[in-house]
Structure formats: C-alpha cells, structure tokens
C-alpha cells in the first residue's frame, strides 16, 4: 500500500466468495450452452463473461479500492475496444 492512501484490506472471506461466484458463473455458462437460445446465445455468453471480468478486475486486481486514475485507464481501453467493434461492424453488417 502506498503512503497517503488508506489501506484497505480485503478479507479472505471476500476472496473466497468472489472465487465461488466465478466458478458458479462458469458452470452457468457451460450448462446453458446446451440450451438453444438462437441468435442471442452469443450475447448471453458474453454478458456472463463480462460479469466475471468485472469481478476479477474489481477484487483480484484491486481496482475497486484504487485511485480514480486507474479506473480512467481501464475506461480508455474499454472505449477503444468498443469503438473498434462498432467500426468493424460497419463492414460486417453492410457487406
């Protein structure tokens, strides 16, 4: 922990809880892959994956308790990624 920043300890309990949620979300993905959701199947899988990454980033990578600038950095990366997807879709969906 840096000085000037109030130390924030995450308890083992929280870590275990996050870990268990990750496992159950994985199980969920695997289970529903057997169900035919048609066009939105991919979307559902991605949403679950997104929730999982938020958990990892916030707790295991400590971003939830860190300075705002790190959140900003992550936002930059996410916005870039989103823009890349949108621009690529101008090709994929208009061919």
């Amino acid at each position: 922990m840096e000085q000037g920043q109030k130390p924030h300890l995450i308890t083992y309990g929280t870590y275990v809880l996050v870990w268990l949620s990750l496992i159950s979300l994985t199980l969920l993905t695997v289970t529903i892959s057997g169900v035919d959701y048609g066009r939105i199947a991919l979307f559902i899988a991605l949403v679950i994956a997104f929730v999982k990454s938020v958990l990892v980033v916030s707790y295991f990578m400590h971003i939830k308790f860190d300075e705002a600038i790190f959140k900003f950095f992550i936002l930059v990366a996410l916005v870039t990624l989103a823009s890349i997807f949108i621009l690529t879709s101008t090709d994929i969906f208009f061919r």
């Binding site: 870039t80 621009l87 101008t90 090709d91 969906f93 208009f94």
Partner: peptide, 22 residues
Amino acid sequence: GYFVWAHHMFTSGMSDTSRMVF
C-alpha cells in the same frame, strides 16, 4: 489513429459503407 485502419483494405471487398467511413 485507432480509427482509420481499414484504409488499407479499400479494395479487399469490404462493405461500401465502411469504405466511406474509413
């Protein structure tokens, strides 16, 4: 600079829309 990449692909067969955007 992130948003111009497909100018390398104008003759690749990608969509007309994206050719104009890029």
